[in-house]
Amino acid sequence: MPFEAVLAQNEISGERRAALNLVLGAVLSRARGQEPQVVRAKPMIELFPVLSLAQANGGIDLAEAIRLVAEVVGSQALAFEVLKAHKGSGFGEDGYEALGL
Rank of each mutant, 00 (worst) to 15 (best):
R67M: 10
Q37E: 09
V39W: 06
P49I: 05
S52T: 10
V6K: 11
K84R: 11
E46G: 09
I66H: 06
Q76I: 05
G100F: 13
L20T: 04
G74C: 12
V38E: 12
N21S: 12
A41Q: 14
E81F: 05
V27R: 01
V72Y: 11
Q76H: 13
V38D: 11
G25P: 02
G88F: 12
L83S: 04
Q37S: 06
P49A: 10
A65H: 06
G14L: 07
E64V: 15
R17D: 15
G33F: 11
R67C: 03
V50G: 07
I66E: 04
A79I: 00
R32S: 06
L20M: 09
L62T: 03
A54Y: 07
V39T: 11
F91G: 00
G59S: 15
A63E: 14
L101Q: 01
G59R: 11
Q37P: 00
L47F: 05
Y96Q: 01
D94Y: 09
V6S: 07
R32G: 02
G90H: 04
D94L: 11
V73Q: 03
Q37N: 05
E64G: 08
G100E: 12
E4N: 08
L99P: 02
L28K: 02
L22T: 01
L78D: 00
L53A: 15
L83D: 02
S75E: 08
L47K: 14
F3E: 03
P2K: 11
V39Q: 09
A31N: 02
R16D: 00
G88V: 14
G88K: 10
A54Q: 02
L47Q: 15
G59I: 11
G90V: 13
L28C: 09
R40C: 00
F3Q: 05
S89I: 09
A63K: 07
A18G: 10
E71M: 15
E93L: 13
S75K: 14
V69P: 01
E15C: 08
G33Y: 08
A63H: 10
R67P: 00
L22K: 07
D94Q: 10
R32I: 12
L28E: 02
A85S: 08
R40G: 07
G88D: 05
L51T: 01
A54D: 07
I60P: 00
R30E: 05
Q37D: 07
A70H: 04
A8D: 15
L24D: 04
A54K: 06
F3H: 10
E97F: 05
H86Q: 03
I12M: 14
P36W: 14
G14K: 02
I12S: 08
A41E: 14
N57L: 14
E46M: 14
V69F: 03
E71P: 06
A63T: 13
Y96F: 13
E46L: 13
P43M: 14
Q37V: 09
L28Q: 04
K42Y: 09
